[in-house]
């Protein structure tokens, strides 16, 4: 146990310190990479809440990244170019608040529909809803449609400056640690136990008197909001938002991170995100066709890890 806590502390310290150190030594590239890593890891942590702890396989969580990013980009766009005075602002609190609100509402509305069904239906419907958001942003010419939206100005907060790469990275890393802690707390709470029970045997939970739909919906909304938050950071990081962020391949990558890292664990999504970023980085420097080895790897893992990737899923009751 002691050793495990030590290793976990070491991972967190490394995530925070190594990129800063490399940046200080004149390799800002790694700071960028780590910022992206932290943002994707936040989304993976959010997805893990429903996929890992709740057993709900969502193939549409990239939608929340997109919604979060546009919630930053659209107010900034109007602040610069006029129109929609009600939301035209660069105030970070408003933008991030909007990101949480919009992703929460979207999760609530879509959750009402997709949580009525299970299994494959759920996978397909989450996919379809994400695609709906994708086409929605493609169709809105004002926000760049297909070409996307360039944010010329980042979110403004007191005391911190998002234009400073070091500060932005630090914010992202600290946010990641906070979200990991948050989901850890939730997973250990009474709510988390109910969620694990639903994953384990939903019918029995209903027979015991739990309105499982409501609990799943709550988890689904929280998960969506975490991903929306991650999207708001992503918008600030890339300063360029496009429907491409919502492409279902992005949703697939998020799933890959969660599952590869180990579902229903606190550190799994982070480890998965690290693996993904490293793979992507290494493979894409070797070849522009890096999706080929990546796809083969994915197939290989699914086929040859005994019992498939799902076998790596520890049972809900397992303590880390």
């Amino acid at each position: 146990m002691q050793k495990k806590v030590f290793v976990q502390g070491l991972i967190l310290a490394a995530v925070l310190i190594v990129p800063l150190l490399l940046n200080y030594m004149g390799h800002p590239f790694y700071l960028d990479l780590a910022t992206r890593l932290c943002i994707l890891a936040i989304a993976a942590v959010g997805l893990n809440l429903i996929l890992g702890y709740g057993g709900m396989i969502s193939f549409g969580h990239a939608a929340y990244l997109g919604l979060g990013a546009y919630a930053v980009g659209i107010p900034a766009h109007h602040w610069l170019y006029g129109g929609m005075d009600a939301i035209a602002t660069t105030n970070g609190f408003v933008q991030f608040g909007l990101a949480l609100l919009v992703s929460g509402i979207f999760a609530l509305l879509t959750g009402l529909v997709c949580l009525k069904v299970k299994g494959v239906y759920f996978i397909m419907i989450t996919m379809a809803f994400a695609q709906m958001v994708y086409y929605l942003f493609i169709s809105i010419a004002e926000y760049g449609g297909d070409d996307g939206l360039v944010i010329d100005t980042r979110s403004e907060f007191p005391l911190v400056n998002f234009d400073d790469a070091t500060q932005l990275f630090t914010i992202c890393a600290v946010s990641l640690f906070f979200v990991m802690w948050l989901v850890w707390r939730i997973s250990k709470s009474q709510f988390g136990m109910v969620l694990a029970g639903i994953k384990g045997n939903e019918q029995r939970m209903i027979a015991m008197g739990y309105n499982t739909f409501a609990y799943k919906l709550a988890a689904y909304v929280i998960s969506g909001m975490i991903c929306g938050f991650s999207g708001a950071l992503l918008g600030n990081f890339t300063t360029f938002i496009s429907p491409e962020m919502i492409d279902w391949a992005r949703s697939g990558e998020l799933m890959f991170m969660v599952i590869l890292g180990g579902v229903a664990t606190t550190f799994g999504p982070l480890l998965g995100a690290i693996t993904f970023i490293i793979l992507e980085e290494v493979l894409s420097t070797i070849t522009i066709y890096w999706h080929l080895p990546f796809g083969l790897l994915l197939i290989g893992v699914v086929m040859f890890v005994k019992g498939g990737l799902s076998a790596l899923i520890p049972k809900a009751g397992d303590k880390e």
């Binding site: 939730i186 008197g209 009751g317």
Partner: peptide, 24 residues
């Protein structure tokens, strides 16, 4: 709930009757 312990199963059964479990 096979993935949980005996006690955890019973806890869930007991808590089911004690109001809501939206305790995060």
């Amino acid at each position: 709930i096979n993935s949980m312990s005996v006690i955890e199963n019973l806890q869930l059964a007991i808590q089911a009757k004690q109001g809501h479990s939206f305790k995060f």
